[in-house]
Amino acid sequence: MDAAKKQELERFALQIRIGALEQFKSRGFGHVGGSLSVADLLSVLYKTQMTIDPKDPRKPDRDKLVCSKGHAGPAIYSTLALLGYFPYEVLKTLNQPGTTLPSHCDRNKTPGVDMTTGSLGQGTSLACGMALGDRIKGRKNRVFLIVGDGEADEGQVWEACMFASAKKLSNLVLLLDYNKKQLDGPVKEILDPLDFEAKFKAFGFDTVTIDGNDAAALYDALERTKKGGDKPFAIVLDTIKGKGVEEIENMAANHSVTADTQQWDVWQKGLIAKLENEEGIA
């Protein structure tokens, strides 16, 4: 990837983060840590990998994204707003009464959200069903599946992995957001997941571990998944929870953060300044 392309993707990731903070600022609290950790991934996915049409969000042969860690909704909403699925102003309604943007992803409420998630683990099986269905229908699309590292405590994740491998769902790309923290603390302390890459390999996936906050690494790894074959793909994303806002990155507990408008504003302005100063991005 050339430098200009990389910078474009980094700028879009910054915009995603800014839009996510717009939502948290409006509501005063939210799942900021796990939303910011996947912003780079969403930038690369939507800008370089996914064939989609914001004017036809339910087109059957579109590429699909299942964010099984449904609490990263605000990062998805920000991305979708930037892509034109709905007006940017809607971001201010996160979790307000009657909103189309609930904490957790809801396919029936938000244009562009491909699957409802929130009860952790369930998105993995849903994505398998979608990938299987697309394959049987002869569609050429891929299904991207974001799984949280804490979420991988759920047994259903591994049931789904066995299924994906047994049914040779090579149109499924699992993206494990290994941001090292879950609600109650470090994943290694809560329920040590051991070696994710070794686990996915053992479950029959084509697996690689990359810097999940690096656009070029994300692009290269995702490009590889276009080759098909007879294995599903798992990319372990080594990420930082709260990535992009240093103060949030350094919090011991940043799964959900509550702050006053002024504080959110300071964090958001920091990101806006980076966006305006292109040299600051790289």
Partner: peptide, 10 residues
């Protein structure tokens, strides 16, 4: 879950 995903696929 797989069945629900298949339903989403038509």
């Amino acid at each position: 879950g797989v069945a629900a995903g298949l339903a989403a696929s038509g």
